[in-house]
Structures are given as structure tokens and as C-alpha cells.
Design a binder for these strands. Structure first.
Lengths: 335, 335
DNA sequence: ATGAAAGCGCTAACAC
DNA sequence: GTGTTAGCGCTTTCAT
């Protein structure tokens, strides 16, 4: 089937040991031999068997990653960040999707370990109540990236979720919004933290949030439509909000379109800010301010820590990292 | 480090062969022994080394996939389709991203082969002028999925791209559009084919396309903005189009917003249809008709063919498949 | 500068 | 029903 070291050795009347040395760039091979070997490798399209090498050396130079789904543009950003660090270091990232299912997630994590990855990056589902417990017992470095893991284990790179709410609150306060509406997002820990941060920042500024302007979402409805209808309702009340925080950019888009449909001027009479900074969505007219959740940077950090932990062979000298979101101001909150 | 068969064998005073048999569900093991082994495996959190097994058996039960980027929602759909078929068959899909770079694409394909995947699914870049030639020489089944490969090799599952243009043309013709604008997309083979299909369907119906209503895109500009400004220009002319075909849904969204901004009524005075059926984009108000490029089905087909080719051990009895796009009619072309 | 032997963790093909 | 032997493709160690 595939070409082996042995085949090349036979061809050239050398031992496979010599071929192996050339392959790995050892210096104790004559220049001439080296050239012949390299030439033959190319001709035969030789590709080393990483499994066999890994079996011998205990290293595969691959890092596994389990993502909850690929539908999410933040995941794509994170992957870019990870690859940016991993590739120059000679490692490669292999991704599998959990398709939003806890059991599949666990299974995929296990498979990565079975495939002997040198490290494993797990991107927990937003709505995860627990993370795969296979990962508690492995000696392979595991790094959680993105959503903070629901229970404290190992090393994680995640966002200060409360700051997402805080930044949104401060942004609206700076812009003199007095009647703030909050589209609360799903019933998850992440959404709770963001909301807590929002409330806390309001309190700190002596401001309050009216109960009837906190809107629970109908998860079946889809983000855009839920944002749309929630905002219709808010606008239809006797006193209207003059600022709205949405849990996603799509919800923010729904909110914008509901407001425009009612003839509410944005940002003059109503300011809107979303979450995720999904450029495709945000930069449509009228463009939406958003919170950048710095997924790419999370990816870079996760990758760097993975490399360090591989290097120190599990000595676990790495600490978890929390990053801060960033406001991206566009027309929807521009004065 | 990790637990091996041997460790369990030692623990239980058995040979590792017996443990291996239990692991693989062979029947010639006493129920009692089997139970003991299973129990100990669980206790020790044993995970078989797939590399070692693969080295011995020549099968890893993993299928590699190289994608041009993860930013594209169609890729996520395709992956869903692939996993839907692969997982029940006991295979798992491992994905790597080429980050839009031909060299990286080639390297990632090679790495998959080095990691001994049982098959490789390659999703060529839209703008690819060639595909990795490493793949010409391997005995591992390679399946191209999505964009048709630029040169004919092996098995591919792709879309009848000309039909994309044809369907769009027929859709507009049925709706009595007389003055059709066409936002042409990038200078790629795929865009050319779609355009050719569009023209051909017009001709077949005795209709024509005015040269000044074919708009080339400025690729740097971003899809939304390019669609927006192209449509502004079209609308600003002395005679206005009453139908527009856009190369992507985002461009269609830009077209819609440009028209609405100019007070043009959709669909009454102008009908718009995009491509890709990206639900997030299409289902915003006013919702956009689009061509579904059936990525998920392409994924399923690719996976099935991968399994067949693994099964028949390279006998290559599989033929390429061409699928047809589907019209999804929403408000922007609703009478 | 080159090579022989051993073994990584597992399983196919056989004994017993 | 259980165990022995050999070997997958590679690299480590140590001779030559």
C-alpha cells in the first residue's frame, strides 16, 4: 500500500535506519546519501506514518479540539487564533464537532485521547451543565476555551462574562439612556452572568432596571424573530425604552428592524447594542454596535498554554486566564 | 502514563490477549472473565490506543476533512450531513482548516494521510485553481465535496452550478421580470458557471440580459456593501431593473436595503434572489428568497461514498455525483 | 557514516 | 476459553 521507510531503504541499498535519520534531519549522514534519500522520497511520494512514529516517541504533534457546533462564527474565529499559534510551532489542530450533544461531546473527547493527541482544547457548549468527566482522569493537558466550564477543572481561557453586561450598561449610561431594555437570552450560566454584570453596573451608577423591560426569550423562535417581537412589545408599552441590550447580534438586528418598522429613530430615540460582533450581521444598514467577545484572542491564548503544558509535560504550571470583552461602537449607539 | 492492555492483564492475572478480546467484543471469553475485565477497564479509565491498533489493523475508523475555512455556514451544514452518516457507521470525522491558503490546504491533506485516516474528504476553495496533487498519488480514498474540483480527479460530490443560474432565471421569468440585473460575484469558475446557466435559461426563453445590468463586484468591499452599492447604481440608471440575482445572500441583503432606501417596493417593483440560503441572513425582514445549495445533502452523499470506498478497499467503483440546487421562495420574490 | 536489535500498544493467526 | 508468537512502521540505543 503506502510507501514505508523500508521500501526506500531497499531501493537504495541502505538500512531503514539511515532513511529515518534523513527524515528527521539528523546530521550524521553523508551529504550524498542524504541527497539520494531525499530524492527517492520525493519520487515515491513518501509520507511518514505519524501513528507509528507517535507510538514510538509518544508525541503526535497534533492538538485535538472539540467544538459544540460549527454554526457559530465565534468558533471559526477561535480556530483561526489557535492555528495562528500552533502551526508555526509545528503542531496541527484537528477539530471534531459535538453537534450540541453532551454525549457526543464526551465521545469525541475520548476519541481524541485515543488518537493520542498531545493536548486537547475543549470549547464547552453554552448551555453545558457539566463537562466530559473523561477529561478529569487523563494525563493529557486539557484546556477549556470560550465559555467558562461549568465546574472548575484544569486550565481555562474564557471571558469575564459579567464585564459583557457591565460594558453594555456603561455604554448606554454614557450615552444618557435612562430607560433601558434588556433582552435576556437563554437560561444559561453565561446569560445569567452577563445580566448580573449589567445590573451591577447600573446599581453602581445609581441607576435601576424596570422589571417589565427585562425580556425573556422564546428559544424556539430564533434570535432574529425573538429580538424583533420582544422589541415590538417594549415599544408598544406606555413608556418606551431608549436603549436596548440584546444577547446576540441577530437579536439586536431584530430589535433594530422592529424599531425602524415602528418609526422609532435609531440611535436618536433608541440605542441598541448586541453581542458577538458578528461582522456580517452588524455591518448591515443601520449598523449595530456590539460587544466583541475576543474569540480569536481566546484561541491564541489557549494554543499558547497548550504548547506550554505539552512542553512541561503535564507539570501544570499554567493558570487560567480571563479576558475582557470590547465595545465596538457603530451607528446604533452613535450620538 | 496512560493505561495499557498489559496493565489490566497484569492486574487480573490474564494475558493481554484476553483483554484485547474483551475489548473488541470477541465471544470466546467466559462471561465471568469478561465482566472482570470490563469492570477493571472502567475503574482504570482505560482508553485503547487507536494509533497502535491502526498500525496493526490498517484501519483507524477516522475520516479526515480539509475545509477552506470555517467562516462559511455552508461548511457547517456539510459537516452535519457527513457526521450524520459517519457516526452511526462507527467512523468519526476529524476536520482541519486550510485558512484559505492553497499551501496550507496541501499540507493539511498530507497530514491527514500521515495520520492514517481511512478516507479523506476535501472541500476545495471556491477560488482554487488547482487541488493538492499529493492526493493524486495516494491509495486512500479521496472525495471532493462542495465546490467542484477545478480539474477532474477521483470522485466528487458537487452542485450543478449552472442550474443555480438557471433556477434563478426561471424564477424571475415566472414572476414576469423583464429587466433583470445580475450581481456577478467573484471571478471564479463557479461564478462563471452560474452566470452561464443564467444566460442560457434566458436565451431558452427568448429573453436577454442588458450588458449594463451585469455588475462586477469589488471583492475588497465585502458582500453586503458591494450588493448595496451595485444596486444603488442599477436603480439610479434611467431604466430600472425589476429583478436582481445576487451571488450571495449578503449581497442580496445589500441589494434589498439599497432598494428600500430608495423607496423601491419589494417585491412589487423589484424582486431579489440570493444564493446560499443562509437562514440567519435570509429570514431577516424583508425576508429574502434564495437558492439552497444543499450542502447538507452533499455532505451525506460524500460520507456514504467515503464509506463505500473504504469498504471496497479502493476498488473505486464509485461515481461522481451532481446535485441540484433548490429555490427557497420568501418575501423578496413573493407575488 | 551506517546499521542491528529492541520495543512502542495493539491484534491476526494460531496453539493449547 | 485462554495464551503464545509475530509484526504493523517507526525511533532509540548502541555497535561497528
Amino acid at each position: 500500500m503506502a510507501i514505508r521507510l523500508q521500501d526506500i531503504a531497499d531501493d537504495l541499498n541502505l538500512s531503514k535506519m539511515t532513511i529515518s535519520k534523513v527524515l528527521r534531519g539528523q546530521t550524521d549522514v553523508s551529504a550524498e546519501t542524504k541527497a539520494r534519500v531525499l530524492k527517492r522520497m520525493k519520487e515515491l511520494n513518501y509520507r511518514p506514518n505519524i501513528s507509528a512514529r507517535g507510538l514510538r516517541t509518544g508525541q503526535t504533534y497534533s492538538v485535538g479540539m472539540v467544538v459544540p457546533t460549527l454554526e457559530n462564527p465565534a468558533i471559526a474565529e477561535m480556530v483561526r487564533g489557535i492555528n495562528e499559534i500552533l502551526r508555526p510551532a509545528g503542531y496541527s489542530l484537528v477539530i471534531t464537532s459535538a453537534d450540541g450533544d453532551a454525549e457526543v461531546e464526551e465521545r469525541e473527547a475520548e476519541l481524541h485521547l485515543s488518537r493520542q493527541v498531545d493536548a486537547l482544547i475543549v470549547c464547552p457548549r453554552n448551555d453545558a451543565s457539566d463537562i466530559p468527566h473523561v477529561l478529569d482522569t487523563t494525563s493529557v493537558p486539557v484546556i477549556y476555551a470560550g465559555t467558562p466550564p461549568p465546574r472548575s477543572v484544569g486550565v481555562s481561557i474564557s471571558l469575564r462574562e459579567t464585564e459583557v453586561g457591565e460594558l453594555a450598561a456603561r455604554h448606554l449610561l454614557e450615552r444618557r439612556c435612562r430607560r433601558r431594555g434588556y433582552l435576556r437570552g437563554p437560561r444559561t450560566a453565561v446569560a445569567d452572568q452577563r445580566f448580573a454584570g449589567f445590573l451591577q453596573a447600573l446599581h453602581a451608577a445609581g441607576a435601576t432596571l424596570r422589571q417589565e423591560w427585562i425580556v425573556e426569550m422564546q428559544p424556539e423562535e430564533g434570535d432574529y424573530r425573538s429580538g424583533f417581537f420582544a422589541t415590538k412589545r417594549l415599544i408598544g408599552g406606555k413608556t418606551r425604552p431608549d436603549g436596548i441590550v440584546a444577547y446576540t447580534d441577530l437579536q439586536a438586528a431584530g430589535a433594530r428592524d422592529a424599531a425602524l418598522a415602528e418609526g422609532v429613530e435609531i440611535p436618536h430615540s433608541l440605542q441598541i447594542i448586541g453581542c458577538g460582533n458578528a461582522v456580517d450581521i452588524c455591518e448591515m444598514q443601520l449598523s449595530l454596535s456590539s460587544l466583541d467577545l475576543v474569540a480569536e484572542e481566546i484561541g491564541r491564548r489557549a494554543a499558547r498554554i497548550a504548547l506550554k503544558r505539552i512542553d512541561e509535560k503535564g507539570a501544570n504550571g499554567q493558570r487560567s486566564v480571563l479576558l475582557s470583552p470590547k465595545i465596538v461602537c457603530r451607528e446604533s449607539t452613535r450620538r
